[in-house]
């Protein structure tokens, strides 16, 4: 059993580090070697002719400008499909803010500073953040998340530093988000991130879930304490809308009562090997 322990967190850190290195190294390649095969950051990333566009940024652009541009929709396709099938995995496994927050967590653990989640808001705030942000953007007539999004700002600040040898002032938002982590883990990600809310909404019928096996659970509560989003996997919240499938609770469980499971496609199809999925 100990061999299985902490499996996902190691994988996750590797993926996050790789994802962060992409946006860290790219500006240098573009600036000093004019190597533009990989371009941009997590607002729009281009790998050769394969383009990704962040779904919320794309949606804002369409809603506010009231025009549709087909390449934009195609760029949003893969991120949207990823969210539909796997849920908020962008947040849990790729987002540079979550990566920096995890580094912050590790640093605090190293310094033996203990935290409690001081501020808890109703989860509904998450949806109000998304709807409010979209409505406000449409009223003002300018998309707001495109220049205020913390994940995007990390990329932009790195690019600004490399290209223009300066930092943009709005980078304080990133610092603010990381500071909020000191009081409540992932306060921004939990309650305020409109992009996270959109991905969670898209992932409401996702296939990949954290499922609890009732008979093996001792109700020790380790998983609840491990969850960076403050969810309670012991109460089955690993299958809720808000879970970003990071696997922290699966790692924390000593009895393997929690595991990632694929939900069968369609309500009637039930595979014999996984009778407890539903």
């Amino acid at each position: 059993m100990s061999g299985k322990k902490r499996r996902y967190s190691r994988w996750r850190l590797a993926v996050q580090t790789a994802a962060f290195l992409v946006i860290l190294i790219n500006p240098f390649l573009n600036y000093y070697w004019q190597f533009s095969f990989v371009q941009g950051w997590y607002q729009s990333l281009g790998i050769g002719k394969l383009w990704f566009v962040s779904p919320l940024e794309g949606l804002e652009s369409i809603l506010v400008s009231k025009t549709v541009y087909l390449p934009l929709l195609i760029g949003m396709l893969i991120p949207v499909l990823l969210a539909l099938f796997l849920g908020r995995v962008f947040c849990g496994w790729i987002c540079p803010i979550h990566f920096l927050s995890e580094l912050e967590d590790r640093l605090l653990r190293l310094l033996r500073i203990k935290r409690r989640d001081l501020w808890r808001l109703p989860r509904m705030v998450f949806w109000f953040a998304l709807i409010g942000e979209l409505l406000l953007s449409m009223i003002i007539g300018a998309p707001l998340f495109v220049f205020l999004s913390p994940p995007g700002l990390v990329g932009r600040e790195i690019m600004m530093a490399v290209f223009f040898h300066t930092l943009a002032l709005e980078g304080v938002i990133v610092v603010l988000v990381l500071t909020l982590n000191l009081f409540t883990r992932r306060f921004f990600c939990r309650y305020l991130c409109p992009l996270g809310a959109l991905l969670a909404f898209l992932g409401s019928k996702r296939r990949l879930l954290v499922v609890k096996r009732e008979e093996e659970c001792l109700k020790c509560g380790l998983c609840d304490r491990a969850c960076p989003l403050g969810l309670s996997p012991s109460q089955g919240e690993g299958a809720s809308l808000y879970c970003w499938n990071c696997g922290e609770c699966v790692d924390a469980c000593r009895l393997n009562a929690l595991a990632f499971r694929w939900r069968a496609i369609g309500p009637r199809v039930q595979s014999d090997s996984q009778p407890r999925d539903e």
Partner: peptide
């Protein structure tokens, strides 16, 4: 509509060889 359409991805600035 420029500020409405642009998603601030900065790719035009990154590819501009002349800065």
């Amino acid at each position: 509509i420029f500020p409405a359409k642009c998603i601030r991805c900065g790719r035009c600035a990154e590819i501009c060889s002349y800065r």
